[in-house]
Every structure is written in C-alpha cells, then in structure tokens.
C-alpha cells in the first residue's frame, strides 16, 4: 500500500510531531505534560511512519534492538540520576546535583529536566516496541 498523498503528508507531519513531543518533554517542569505525554507523542510519530510506509521501512529507521536498548537506557538513566542524589549526600532522588536555576526558565528545576528526558526516551521506545510486538503474530 503506497499512497503518495498519505506518504507525503506523513513526511511533512512527522518533524512537527516530533518537535511537539520534544517540546512537551523538555517543558515538563514548566507546563502540563512531561515525560509520559511527550514520550507517547514522540513514539506515535514512528508508529505513524510505520502505518503510512511499510513496517520494514520503519524498522530500518528505528530497529527493534535499538528500541529495546533505548528502553533499558531510559530506566538506567533515571535510576542513576536518583542515585546521584545519595552520592551528593541527600536522599534518593534529592534535587541537589546542581542549582535550581531561575524559576520559569527552561534550564531550571534541577534534576527534573534530565529525569523527564529519561522518562520520555523510555516511554517513546516502549510505545514503539509495543507496536512492533502487536504486529508480529507468533504461532504457538
């Protein structure tokens, strides 16, 4: 199924969807949204690509093993950021690694920004992995 109109529109849309996803993620500490919402939007862009083009094309862009790797990396990053809080002398997930910055600016909120980033990566990869898993029907 190669529909020129659909494929062209999807090609045009995907950069905006991804930009919006990233915007939602990195503004997680300032506005509604955050890692979960942004990650879902980010993941849906690849799903859209897979639906409009072939799944093989989507896999060529974002392979299964890479999706699984990013999934693990997201959680590992989250846990490591949390553990840094202990190393710096506070409790787990203590917001003491660097300064909090000026309230309302993008680079503020201390560890919240990297944590939402990690969650965003994890959620986006999970969305894609789930989609690929639903596609492959395994015979028992």
């Amino acid at each position: 199924m190669a529909d020129l109109v659909l494929q062209t529109v999807v090609k045009l849309l995907i950069p905006f969807i991804q930009m919006y996803g990233i915007f939602i993620i990195i503004n997680g500490h300032l506005s509604p949204g955050g890692g979960f919402a942004g990650g879902t939007i980010l993941g849906s862009s690849i799903i859209l690509y897979a639906l409009a083009f072939h799944v093989e094309d989507a896999l060529a862009h974002y392979s299964r093993s890479r999706a699984k790797m990013m999934e693990s990396a997201g959680v590992v990053a989250f846990a490591l950021i949390g553990l840094f809080g202990i190393i710096r002398g506070g409790h787990f997930l203590a917001n003491n690694i660097w300064g909090l910055g000026e309230t309302g600016t993008l680079l503020s909120g201390g560890i919240i920004l990297p944590i939402t980033l990690a969650i965003g990566i994890k959620v986006a990869s999970t969305m894609i992995t789930l989609f690929f898993h639903l596609l492959e029907e395994k015979k028992l």
Binding site: E71, V76, L80, G82, L83
Partner: peptide, 24 residues
C-alpha cells in the same frame, strides 16, 4: 539509612542492564 532505597533501585537498575548485557 539509605539501604532500603538502594535495595530497590540497584535491583531496578540491574533488571534493565541485564538485556543490554545479554546481547554482548
């Protein structure tokens, strides 16, 4: 006093390192 959270988070960390490790 940090041991309880260390038990939980190191397990969580290792759980997600295992599949990465399993490949190589």
């Amino acid at each position: 006093t940090h041991l309880p959270i260390l038990i939980i988070t190191t397990s969580l960390l290792v759980a997600f390192v295992l599949p990465l490790l399993g490949r190589h």
